[in-house]
């Protein structure tokens, strides 16, 4: 089986993140890390590989040259190869264009399963997996908390507003996983050593071949920093804070 895992680098969520006020794009000048949700997606693929020798896991990404660090990490966790689409023309690409490029890259790999995170921690729009699936004319099983992968199908469990559901799709397919899916492993020292010898392919858009035309695009009109919240009232509990808080909630018609 061959599995593609879609990954991206995002600004560290532990740091203050900002948008460029002119372009409206996420400021990526600071420390960027492999998105945690992508590591979980990779973990889902690696667990299958651990149990099924002969499985090949390829991480696929689009991004600037600093992305190498994240891809090397994925390789040291156990992915077999990495494919990076690197092209200045892709700077600031929206979800539609990103999905079109990733779909093209994945198509060139002829994989059985594409695993993605359900949504990135920066964009959070969560639409890329479905768009990739549509480009590839593959079924999609999204937002899975638990995944059972086999030679012929994927079984998955998803949380719903009222509980959960189990569903299946035949392979080949695209799946996306939530942060409940799998705790990602650490890379290992041996993994770091062997990652050096693994293949990291870099391609430009031109090398990818024909992108689907007519990938609808969006444009950003304005970006405003939200005003800081005005300072609120703060009390120190001297035995009566519960009552004072109840009073506050009542007076503001909050209950």
């Amino acid at each position: 089986m061959k599995i593609a895992v879609l990954v991206k680098q995002v600004p560290d969520t532990g740091e203050q993140r900002t948008l460029d006020p002119i372009t409206g794009l996420v400021d990526r000048r600071g420390e960027n890390v492999l998105d945690e949700i992508n590591e979980r997606a990779l973990e889902v693929a690696l667990r299958y590989k651990d149990a099924n020798k002969g499985t090949e896991v390829v991480v696929v990404s689009m991004g600037p040259d600093t992305l190498t660090k994240g891809l090397r990490k994925a390789l040291s966790m156990g992915a077999d190869a990495a494919l990076q689409v690197l092209d200045d023309a892709l700077a600031g690409a929206d979800a539609g264009r990103t999905a079109a490029v990733l779909a093209c890259a994945v198509r060139s790999l002829a994989v059985d399963v594409v695993v993605a995170g359900n949504e990135s921690t920066d964009g959070r729009s969560g639409v890329v997996p479905a768009m990739v699936a549509e480009h590839l004319s593959l079924p999609l099983l999204s937002a899975l908390d638990a995944v059972e992968l086999s030679e012929v199908e994927v079984l998955g469990q998803r949380s719903t507003a009222t509980g959960s559901l189990r569903a299946s799709v035949p392979l080949p397919a695209v799946i996306s996983v939530t942060e409940r899916s799998a705790e990602a492993r650490f890379p290992s020292f041996k993994g770091i050593m062997t990652a050096k010898r693994k293949v990291l392919t870099v391609m430009s858009v031109a090398q990818l071949g024909q992108l689907p035309g007519n990938t609808g695009q969006t444009s950003i009109l304005s970006t405003l920093r939200s005003p800081a919240r005005p300072a609120g009232r703060r009390i120190v509990d001297e035995g009566n804070a519960g009552h004072e808080l109840a009073q506050f909630l009542r007076s503001g018609s909050l209950i």
Binding site: K69, R72, K73, S76, F186, P187, S188, F189, I192, M193, A195, K196
Partner: peptide
């Protein structure tokens, strides 16, 4: 080296 950087990251995570 790239490997040492990856090792530092790994140990930091751990």
């Amino acid at each position: 080296s790239d490997e040492q950087r990856a090792i530092v990251d790994l140990c930091k995570d751990f």
